[in-house]
Lab assay of single mutants.
Amino acid sequence: CHSECLGNCSQPDDPTKCVACRNFYLDGRCVETCPPPYYHFQDWRCVNFSFCQDLHHKCKNSRRQGCHQYVIHNNKCIPECPSGYTMNSSNLLCTPCLGPCPKVCHLLEGEKTIDSVTSAQELRGCTVINGSLIINIRGGNNLAAELEANLGLIEEISGYLKIRRSYALVSLSFFRKLRLIRGETLEIGNYSFYALDNQNLRQLWDWSKHNLTITQGKLFFHYNPKLCLSEIHKMEEVSGTKGRQERNDIALKTNGDQASCENELLKFSYIRTSFDKILLRWEPYWPPDFRDLLGFMLFYKEAPYQNVTEFDGQDACGSNSWTVVDIDPPLRSNDPKSQNHPGWLMRGLKPWTQYAIFVKTLVTFSDERRTYGAKSDIIYVQTDATNPSVPLDPISVSNSSSQIILKWKPPSDPNGNITHYLVFWERQAEDSELFELDYCLKGLKLPSRTWSPPFESEDSQKHNQSEYEDSAGECCSCPKTDSQILKELEESSFRKTFEDYLHNVVFVPRKT
């Protein structure tokens, strides 16, 4: 048989008469490798580009789960590009990614509803959504962080984005990388972005840091009482949809009607710091009717980097990364020049730590249904340095008659930039024990000054392991946590139920 035959053949030295091919099969003959313009397919066939392209389009058009959109890589027609490569849609070739590779997620039936953290986790790592997304989240724990972890990498949506009755959302900033909504599939009414009845939605994105392009379709905003109209108009300008909307697409009466839409800028007039305090004062603000001013709200939190936005980490279910302080308005003076500047002394802060701070007014709604208010920009203030805590785990070892090696770990709280350490030492008198000992005694162990690591005695271990207080009263049991108490109650309830079950099964009433 021919060298490319495997198993047997019907005619000697003829690659077209093989029972099976050793390498690849091409047009009725066995070959060692697939010549151009053919590609290896499933490690035994040679196919042309049209064959591989037909497989790709067949799966793409069917949208069946589990099928493969075949691509070409290293002269092979394979189910998908290997790690580190992405497909070129024009020629199906796998090309190296520039940075992290995109991950295209194809949605069944063309859309997916995100109504819980669990459903959001199914899209973790996706960068391109081939379909439409509907966000409908009523509640949950730590929602802002969970949504950002699972949806934060999405850069492109081919269909539309719909935010509907998501009472738990305060902001859409968890879509931190969303840059493009194509609108290839539109919501009824030709809408590519749809926001309806979101009672706590206050911000779409921080438009000073976020760009969003909507290729096709219109915007729809109705019944978002805490979303200011200025935020919607800003989205029109940034996304390129200005002029597409009709009169009733953006409701003037049901958007922002319960919001404090600040239209003035508060400026800080005085800032002073110490290692654990920050004193702030800002310019006074009074609405047209000074009785509408209820006070100020001061927001602050630790910020290692200057990239904080107002609604980071917030949701309507209680999660809030900001510390909020309510401040009463100052006494009002008739003389504008003698107006008191409101302020606040922030206490209990960490030394040498940068804080993000902003302040906003708290006002009631005027009778004319106009909203007044003022808010400052987010500023960054760093507390002063102070003395560091003591170095940890000092170790001293003498390696000769004239040297001592000293080692330690950095302090747990540096409280500033540590530039150097101060080492103090003092000579001590020799131990009298060394002169009084009889060095001729056998088995004498000389006193040693070398360091030995501390260890816990058996008594201390027994005390720590004991669940009861000892007789001397030195140790006591740790208080039980809520989960331990709940577990004990469940076990007790189970024992009672099981005992009742045994009584009912074992003891049967005697027939009379």
Score class of each variant (00 low, 15 high):
Lys103Asp: 09
Lys103Thr: 15
Lys103Arg: 11
Val104Thr: 04
His106Ser: 12
His106Cys: 03
Leu107Ala: 11
Leu107Lys: 03
Leu107Asp: 04
Glu109Ile: 15
Glu109Gly: 05
Gly110Ser: 11
Gly110Gln: 14
Ile114Arg: 00
Ile114His: 01
Val117Met: 09
Val117Asn: 13
Thr118Phe: 12
Ser119Gly: 14
Gln121Cys: 04
Gln121Trp: 15
Gln121Lys: 01
Gln121Phe: 09
Glu122Ala: 12
Glu122Tyr: 07
Leu123Glu: 01
Leu123Val: 14
Gly125Leu: 11
Thr127Lys: 15
Thr127Cys: 08
Val128Trp: 14
Ser132Met: 01
Ser132Gly: 12
Ser132Arg: 04
Leu133Ile: 04
Leu133His: 00
Ile134Pro: 00
Arg138Thr: 01
Arg138Ile: 06
Gly139Trp: 05
Gly140Asp: 13
Gly140Leu: 03
Asn141Val: 12
Glu148Leu: 12
Ala149Cys: 11
Ala149Val: 14
Asn150Cys: 07
Leu151Gln: 00
Gly152Ser: 03
Gly152Trp: 05
Leu153Val: 15
Ile154Leu: 10
Ile157Glu: 00
Ser158Lys: 12
Gly159Trp: 02
Gly159Ile: 01
Tyr160Arg: 11
Leu161Val: 09
Leu161Ile: 15
Arg164Pro: 06
Arg164Phe: 05
Arg165Ile: 10
Ser166Arg: 00
Ser166Val: 05
Ser166Asp: 15
Ala168Tyr: 11
Leu169His: 04
Ser171Ile: 02
Ser171Met: 05
Ser171Gly: 07
Leu172Pro: 03
Leu172Val: 13
Leu172Gly: 03
Ser173Asp: 12
Ser173Phe: 11
Phe174Glu: 01
Phe175Ile: 13
Phe175Pro: 00
Phe175Arg: 00
Arg176Leu: 14
Arg176Cys: 04
Lys177Thr: 07
Leu178Gln: 01
Arg179Gly: 12
Arg179Ala: 08
Ile181Met: 05
Arg182Gln: 12
Arg182Phe: 13
Gly183Val: 01
Thr185Asp: 05
Leu186Asp: 09
Asn190Ala: 09
Tyr191Trp: 08
Phe193His: 01
Phe193Pro: 01
Phe193Thr: 03
Phe193Ala: 03
Tyr194Arg: 12
Tyr194Glu: 15
Tyr194Pro: 01
Ala195Ile: 14
Leu196Trp: 13
Asp197Ser: 08
Asn198Arg: 00
Leu201Cys: 06
Arg202Val: 05
Leu204Ile: 13
Leu204Asn: 07
Asp206Arg: 10
Trp207Thr: 06
Ser208Thr: 11
Asn211Gly: 14
Asn211Phe: 04
Asn211Asp: 10
Asn211Ser: 08
Leu212Glu: 00
Leu212Val: 12
Thr213Ala: 13
Thr213Phe: 09
Thr213Trp: 07
Ile214Arg: 08
Ile214His: 06
Thr215Trp: 07
Thr215Leu: 04
Gly217Thr: 00
Gly217Asn: 05
Lys218Arg: 13
Lys218Val: 13
Phe221Lys: 02
Tyr223Ala: 08
Lys226Phe: 09
Lys226Ile: 15
Cys228Tyr: 03
Cys228Gln: 02
Glu231Lys: 12
His233Gln: 04
Lys234Gly: 05
Lys234Ala: 14
Met235Phe: 08
Glu236Val: 13
Glu236Thr: 15
Glu236Pro: 04
Glu236Gly: 15
Glu237Val: 01
Val238Ser: 11
Thr241Met: 14
Thr241Ile: 06
Thr241Gln: 06
Gly243Met: 11
Gly243Pro: 01
Gly243Ser: 10
Gln245Arg: 10
Glu246Met: 09
Glu246Phe: 08
Asp249Arg: 07
Ile250Val: 15
Ile250Lys: 05
Ile250Glu: 15
Ala251Trp: 14
Ala251Met: 09
Ala251Val: 06
Leu252Tyr: 12
Lys253Tyr: 10
Thr254Pro: 09
Gly256Arg: 05
Asp257Arg: 13
Ala259Tyr: 02
Ala259Val: 07
Ser260Ala: 07
Ser260Asn: 02
Ser260Leu: 09
Glu262Gly: 06
Asn263Phe: 14
Asn263Ala: 04
Glu264Cys: 14
Glu264Arg: 07
Leu265Pro: 07
Lys267Pro: 14
Ser269Trp: 14
Ile271Asp: 03
Thr273Val: 06
Ser274Pro: 00
Phe275Arg: 05
Asp276Ala: 13
Lys277Trp: 14
Lys277Pro: 00
Leu279Thr: 01
Arg281Val: 15
Arg281His: 04
Glu283Phe: 14
Pro284Leu: 07
Pro284Arg: 15
Trp286Leu: 07
Pro287Cys: 06
Leu293Trp: 05
Leu293Tyr: 02
Leu293Val: 03
Gly295Ala: 11
Gly295Asp: 14
Gly295Tyr: 06
Phe296Arg: 00
Phe296Pro: 01
Leu298Arg: 00
Leu298Cys: 09
Tyr300Lys: 04
Lys301Gln: 03
Glu302Ala: 14
Ala303Asn: 04
Pro304His: 14
Pro304Leu: 12
Pro304Glu: 15
Gln306Ser: 08
Gln306Pro: 07
Asn307Met: 06
Asn307Ser: 14
Asn307Tyr: 04
Thr309Val: 11
Phe311Gln: 08
Phe311Tyr: 14
Phe311His: 10
Asp315Glu: 02
Asp315Met: 15
Ala316Leu: 14
Gly318Arg: 02
Gly318Pro: 06
Gly318Ser: 13
Gly318Leu: 12
Ser319Pro: 14
Asn320His: 10
Ser321Tyr: 00
Ser321Asn: 11
Ser321Phe: 11
Ser321Asp: 04
Thr323Phe: 12
Thr323Asn: 15
Val324Trp: 11
Val325Arg: 07
Ile327Ala: 06
Ile327Ser: 06
Asp328Gly: 06
Pro329His: 05
Pro330Glu: 14
Leu331Lys: 11
Leu331Gly: 14
Asn334Leu: 11
Asn334Ala: 07
Asp335Phe: 06
Pro336His: 08
Lys337Thr: 12
Lys337Ser: 08
Gln339Leu: 11
His341Asn: 13
His341Phe: 10
Pro342Gln: 10
Pro342Thr: 07
Trp344Met: 03
Met346Trp: 02
Met346Tyr: 03
Met346Asn: 04
Arg347Asp: 07
Arg347Lys: 11
Arg347Ala: 03
Arg347Gly: 06
Leu349Met: 14
Lys350Tyr: 12
Lys350Gly: 14
Pro351Leu: 02
Trp352Asp: 14
Trp352Phe: 14
Gln354His: 08
Gln354Cys: 15
Gln354Trp: 11
Tyr355Thr: 00
Tyr355Met: 02
Ile357Pro: 01
Ile357Phe: 15
Phe358Lys: 15
Lys360Thr: 04
Thr361Gly: 04
Thr361Ile: 12
Thr361Ser: 12
Leu362Met: 14
Leu362Cys: 06
Leu362Thr: 01
Val363Arg: 04
Phe365Ala: 09
Glu368Trp: 09
Arg369Tyr: 15
Arg369Ala: 05
Thr371Phe: 04
Ala374Arg: 02
Ile378Ser: 03
Ile379Gly: 06
Ile379Glu: 11
Tyr380Arg: 09
Gln382Leu: 08
Gln382Ile: 03
Thr383Trp: 00
Thr383Arg: 00
Thr383Val: 03
Thr383Glu: 00
Asp384Leu: 15
Ala385Trp: 10
Thr386Leu: 04
Thr386Ser: 08
Asn387Ile: 05
Pro388Phe: 00
Pro394Met: 04
Ile395Gln: 03
Ser396Trp: 08
Val397Phe: 15
Val397Pro: 03
Val397Gln: 13
Val397Leu: 15
Ser398Phe: 15
Ser398Thr: 15
Ser398Tyr: 04
Asn399Lys: 13
Asn399Ile: 05
Asn399Leu: 13
Ser400Thr: 09
Ser400Cys: 05
Ser401Thr: 10
Gln403Lys: 11
Lys407Met: 11
